[in-house]
């Protein structure tokens, strides 16, 4: 072992201490101007390779998947007709009551540039930061699905903690056959798992039910889908029952997401 080695080891320990006392966000922001575009290029390349591999590996199952998707389309078409009727009825009622849409979301589109480990979970990195108006605590969505919450921001990069991160808590509601049947709390578990807890025993929850944000607590907007129930566990002598939640999207397949600046 050389002197250079020991000097660099002590220097790295000094950096750890220094960053704990005075967070070196300035150095991070400056370096990320150069590093973030390279990371973005590498991520996009890997995502394309992953998509191609996924396409090739799913080829043998495409026929059966196609058949089941056709069935789903016909059932969804029926639902769409019902929703359209309800929507037009809702519009007429809104006009009559003079109700305006009070919610106006301001969003910023950000590209995924990589991932980082934090608190036993993968943290997603987006290429928009404080310079674009992003702040800690903002919600990140894709369509009407919740992707996570911004936990840390530098000038050009924001770090997003997904709902399945350990210690993550999201107030949620259970949607069973298109109607809201009850509430619970989605808790992140180790290894990208989510559990819905605090669900009352008399609530009818089944495999395939959709779990969405309830909007309680004001941290997350309401009606953002979180996942689908994949397993329900309940014991008669317990007050609450739990359910395992499967995310609706795969973090690895995300290329971009919206950061909601206000809602």
């Amino acid at each position: 072992m050389s002197r250079v080695y020991f000097f660099l080891v002590f220097f790295s320990l000094f950096l750890i201490s220094l960053d704990r006392v005075f967070p070196l966000t300035g150095i991070r922001s400056v370096s990320q101007v150069v590093l973030a575009p390279v990371s973005y290029g590498l991520y996009q390349g890997a995502a394309r390779a992953n998509d191609s591999w996924h396409f090739v590996s799913t080829l043998p199952h495409i026929y059966s998947e196609n058949q089941s998707l056709r069935e789903q389309i016909s059932s969804l078409t029926e639902t769409a007709v019902t929703i359209e009727t309800l929507q037009s009825e809702n519009n007429v009622l809104k006009e009559q009551l003079d109700v305006k849409d009070s919610v106006t979301e301001q969003k910023v589109l950000a590209s995924v540039i990589g991932f980082s480990d934090e608190n036993q979970s993968v943290v997603m990195m987006l290429n928009k930061g404080a310079a674009d108006g992003v702040k800690d605590g903002l919600v990140v969505i894709v369509g009407k699905s919740l992707v996570g919450k911004v936990t840390r921001v530098t000038d050009h990069v924001s770090y997003v903690l997904p709902p399945y991160a350990v210690d993550s808590r999201v107030p949620a509601k259970i949607i069973h056959q298109n109607s809201d049947v009850g509430k619970g709390i989605v808790r992140g578990q180790f290894n990208s798992r989510m559990i819905l807890t605090d669900v009352l025993q008399d609530i009818n929850i089944e495999k395939g039910d959709i779990i969405a944000t309830s909007g309680e607590g004001g941290v997350y907007p309401a009606n953002l889908s979180i996942g689908k129930v994949s397993e329900v566990s309940s014991a008669e002598n317990e007050i609450f029952k739990n359910a395992v939640i499967e995310p609706l999207w795969d973090l690895k397949n995300l290329k971009s997401a919206f950061i909601v600046l206000n809602y």
Binding site: L13, I16, D19, L35, S116, D117, M125, Y159
Partner: peptide, 10 residues
């Protein structure tokens, strides 16, 4: 360290 969100130096 500079790219990830963890403490610088880890």
């Amino acid at each position: 360290d500079l790219l990830s969100s963890s403490v610088l130096g880890i």
